[in-house]
Design a protein around this nucleic acid. Structure first.
Lengths: 183, 183
DNA sequence: AGTCGATGAGACATTGGTGTCTCATTCACG
DNA sequence: CGTGAATGAGACACCAATGTCTCATCGACT
């Protein structure tokens, strides 16, 4: 019996990624449980979103760990990061836009930790001379998020082949649109 | 008396850009009119969003015109485009995420026209040898949207100086993160 | 001044989602 | 075979937002 809380969150994430306005009823049905049970495990929609946020942060942190951001060249580390973030990209895209509308409320400080680690990666690349220094780590981090969201949506809508996702994001972010020979 | 429909839409856009869940009441108040009048001009919230979409498309089309995408080098045209899109970026970001949740419904075909013109720009750059050919125009277009949204949000949240916005987006999109000398 | 169209204020019913509760059922475990 | 905890189904009140309506008011134009 005992509902698997983690499992419910995964199902909720999968649904909300596709339809961000899904009701508690929709979510319960998607998770294969009753609305009553869903409410027994999560005080309300807010609590559910927060829990989802926690899960997203935890998974992202795991992805950052797996990408070993401090090892090797910064560009290779960035490629690894993009690859490792792929399974989380959908939830990330959902939470990214969801955060836009938590207007006044304080954001989960877990994000700050992730941001800091990604900032550090870009800064390292700049210090090592691999990355350009006229773009701030903060902007590069935001751009990474933006491209990850764009990638997730593009794949979701069939405008980008899933197999091309990693290459497309990494290459654009690292090398830009311009052809190498033309610089 | 006669309410300026365009003006109301502008106010609505300004508000919804900041708080995408604003109610009709909020919107009416932001526009300085009564909720009744708002309803007299727009059948409902949906109709309002659609009208906003039309406005966004129209403004974007104007921006594309002003950017003269067919003139000069493709890279210079892309820079112009990013600059011209700046005033629309907020609304664009709002509509971009809003479109995600128009799940089944047909999207406004106006977007297709804009997409086509931007695709053409990227394709021209590829044909002229300025742009790399291992990234599809479709993905480049999505990436442009993603970066414009990221830029709008970053500026809105104070993580990116407004003055740096154009440079940050254009340089990242064109040149990527890697330093030129390292390629 | 008189008229007409548009507006503001507010009442009202409706709707969709939420949160709480009850009760019967089911399953695991002793 | 009981027993108890967890679940499913559904009823219920509640709330916020929506959409509609009425009526008084205001302003422009004649």
């Amino acid at each position: 019996m005992a509902v698997d809380r983690e499992r419910v969150l995964k199902d909720a994430a999968a649904l909300l990624t596709r339809k961000s306005t899904a009701s508690m009823d929709d979510i319960a049905r998607a998770a294969g449980i009753s609305r009553a049970t869903l409410h027994r495990h999560f005080a309300g929609r807010d609590a559910l979103i927060r829990a989802l946020e926690e899960l997203g942060i935890k998974d992202s942190a795991r992805a950052l760990d797996a990408a070993r951001l401090e090892e090797g060249g910064a560009d290779a580390a960035l490629r690894r990061l993009i690859g490792e973030l792929e399974p989380v990209a959908g939830v990330l895209a959902f939470l990214y836009t969801e955060n836009q509308l938590f207007e006044g409320e304080e954001i989960n400080e877990g994000w700050l930790g992730l941001d800091a680690r990604i900032h550090a990666l870009f800064r390292r690349g700049q210090e090592e001379g691999t990355f350009r220094i006229d773009l701030t780590p903060a902007w590069l981090t935001e751009a990474l998020y933006g491209l990850i969201c764009a990638g997730a949506w593009s794949v979701h809508e069939g405008r980008l082949a899933r197999a091309d996702r990693n290459h497309s994001i990494a290459e654009l972010l690292l090398g830009g649109v311009r052809r190498e020979s033309t610089r």
